[in-house]
């Protein structure tokens, strides 16, 4: 059971993800112009199918106060909440917030991996998954690809030490950026991941996020939830 947790919202992409052998997908739209109607249409089209479609919100923010406000605003509406990383303060704030599900490419536009031992410890405590985005790796110039592979190695080293959730996503905007799960697993060998770790990042971590969010929607107060 493999999931792709970062795909641009489009019917064509969802069809292709299903064809490539994934079990579920999370479609994202920018949080500024979010519109849940389209996702609802997609979900209603596939009610009979076992293929899962979830709706996610990507949060873009320049400062911590704004980030907190946007998380508060979007949390209940989205199945998956992803924070657009890259800025060190945003990376740290996202890792410290248990309402965030995933921090997206914390290494974006940086000369380091964007995660240090403190953020890694906080991410593990709050179960915030760190995203390794395949699109980011493949869109960069081939002669600079070694840098991104180096960042992924650094994140992997921290993950083995602090055990925070790690997730691999395609970040696809078109069908030309989608790959089969086994191809992605093969690609992860390039930065030192083994098959078990890669499969876990593509299947178990997404499933845990979905389960956690399904449970949290039934929580009435802290420590009590409605069992259906």
């Amino acid at each position: 059971m493999f999931f792709d947790f970062h795909v641009h919202e489009s019917q064509e992409l969802v069809d292709e993800v299903e064809r490539l052998g994934y079990t579920g997908v999370v479609t994202f739209k920018h949080e500024e112009n979010k519109n849940k109607d389209y996702s609802d249409d997609l979900i209603s089209l596939r009610k009979d199918s076992s293929f899962q479609i979830r709706w996610g919100v990507m949060i873009y923010s320049n400062n911590i106060e704004d980030l907190k406000r946007k998380i508060q605003k979007s949390r209940n509406e989205a199945d998956v909440l992803m924070v657009y990383g890259g800025d060190l303060r945003i990376n740290r704030a996202a890792c410290e917030n248990p309402r965030v599900d995933i921090i997206s490419h914390p290494y974006r536009g940086r000369r380091d991996c964007g995660i240090n031992h403190i953020s890694a410890r906080k991410a593990a405590e709050n179960k915030v998954a760190v995203e390794l985005n395949v699109r980011y790796l493949l869109r960069i110039r081939p002669q600079n690809r070694y840098k991104v592979l180096g960042y992924y190695r650094e994140i992997l080293k921290l993950q083995r030490k602090f055990n925070f959730p790690l997730i691999i996503t395609s970040g696809a905007h078109s069908i030309f950026e989608l790959h089969t799960p086994l191809d992605i697993i093969a690609l992860t060998y390039c930065f030192g991941m083994n098959e078990e770790e890669a499969s876990f990042a593509l299947s178990e971590t997404p499933r845990n996020i979905i389960e956690r969010r399904d449970i949290s929607s039934n929580v009435v107060v802290k420590g009590a939830r409605i069992i259906k």
Binding site: L138, R139, F176, H179, L182, A186, Y189
Partner: peptide, 23 residues
């Protein structure tokens, strides 16, 4: 075989057009 398979997703463009390889 794993090393060869790992290059398959890295092919993204050909003659300014997008291209994708799947195993």
């Amino acid at each position: 075989v794993h090393s060869v398979r790992s290059i398959i997703p890295t092919i993204t463009r050909f003659k300014s057009g997008r291209v994708v390889f799947h195993t």
